[in-house]
Design a protein around this nucleic acid. Sequence first.
RNA 1: CGAGCUAGCCGGGUUGCCGCAUGAAAUAUUUGAGGAAAGUCCGAGCAUCAAUGGGCAAGAGUGCAAGCUAACUACUUGUGAAGGCGACUUCAAGGACAGUGCAACAGAAAAAUACCGCCCAAAAGGUUUCCCCUUUCGGGUAAGGAUGGAAAGGCGAGGUAAGAGCUCACCCGCAAAUUGGCGACAAGGCGCGAUGUAAACCCCACUCGAUGCAAGAUCGGGAGCAUUUAUGCAGCCCUAGCGCUCCCCACAUCGCUUGAGCGAUAUAGCGAUAUACCGCCUAGAUAGAUGGCAACCGAACACAGAACUCGGCUUACAGACUAACUCGUGCU
RNA 2: GCGGGAGUGACUCAGUGGUAGAGUGUCACCUUGCCAAGGUGAAAGUCGCGGGUCCGAGUCCCGUCUCCCGCU
Length: 96
Amino acid sequence: MFRKGERTGAPDLTLLSARSREGLKIGLSVSKKVGGAVVRNRVKRLLREAIRPLEDSIFKGCMYVIVAHPSLADKPYCEVCRQVRLVFERAGRLTC
RNA sequence: CGAGCUAGCCGGGUUGCCGCAUGAAAUAUUUGAGGAAAGUCCGAGCAUCAAUGGGCAAGAGUGCAAGCUAACUACUUGUGAAGGCGACUUCAAGGACAGUGCAACAGAAAAAUACCGCCCAAAAGGUUUCCCCUUUCGGGUAAGGAUGGAAAGGCGAGGUAAGAGCUCACCCGCAAAUUGGCGACAAGGCGCGAUGUAAACCCCACUCGAUGCAAGAUCGGGAGCAUUUAUGCAGCCCUAGCGCUCCCCACAUCGCUUGAGCGAUAUAGCGAUAUACCGCCUAGAUAGAUGGCAACCGAACACAGAACUCGGCUUACAGACUAACUCGUGCU
RNA sequence: GCGGGAGUGACUCAGUGGUAGAGUGUCACCUUGCCAAGGUGAAAGUCGCGGGUCCGAGUCCCGUCUCCCGCU
């Protein structure tokens, strides 16, 4: 994914997407630079919650990885939601 | 009222909708992070390693006493030392006449020494009768000598050729008999006067086999050596035992949560803790589960996320509460 | 999860318990018509942080923080 994927950016996160035959798969990458265990778990939860309402409208033929930047750690939920929607729109993967 | 000190406790709760993991089980429901889950600094369980069964070496750790515990270097209560007016707090707290090393600079000298000084005797010289002065050699001495963290117990008197605990008074330190205490130790003081450093090596006493759930168990295939002896398998030895070595595939299931478990009460104990009885079941994932949107409570804002499990230690921490005690001030 | 190492001038590193050093760089002066090279001199250190042992700690001991590496 990191070698071949197509990159799309937002202020505090990056989306990698690549064609796959296995259907929709979404991974999260939150490195130690973001924070300790508590902070990283929270970031992952917020990202999952942000993806959940979009799940039906995302293009099914790809695998995705969302990379969180350290600046995402102190953003509120609505901001995370906005950026996730933005990054999928920019990549042209939303079908609705 | 102010300042302090010690111990303990909490560190969110309730409701609705959507969502995650798990159990029972079949559409509705059970349970779901911490006081430190952290650091990994100690101690155990459990597992494997040739039985790690007995002994040795090497290495590591600990170092006041009694108790407590499954165990401990932890903990409790004491002893001693240091700090604080006090409540109280802190302490790796054995041994320096078993041995070795080190003590920079300064200083005569750093562990036993005579450089200067002081004193005695002899010789030579000056003077020349002596006294006195200078030099050399030999001996005595630790009173004085700008140092240093530390200088051979301190200070005064006697004493002496000069001096010296050599003797004496007062003080300092070590300390035998005896007495009290289970003990550390305390009181006591015959006698004695020893540099410091063991958190330098070390000595003495005591303790420790190694590796860790990524341990390991179950399930598959292949190669080499050996052919029931021997070789080989542990740091070394003894006894017992065993075919040995290597590679690939796979990550499924088990280990995986009921345990030296938690809570209340009573009894024993100053306490750590123990005993009895009653009640409770309280995460178990495997890319790794607790979140989102709202409402209310007076405010919900700290440090922070289980990964085999327990007992401690250490470190981080917004705020809230309870009790005992100490010091100061004012009033009665 | 388990184990090991490092932290010293701006940078790279030395450093037996006894005044903290070297090279590169920086600054000033000399040299040159100017620059470089060369020469002379100077400044720059909470020895990661907090305690302890010691007369005295960068060094020894304990705790702590950050970074790096290995097993897997």
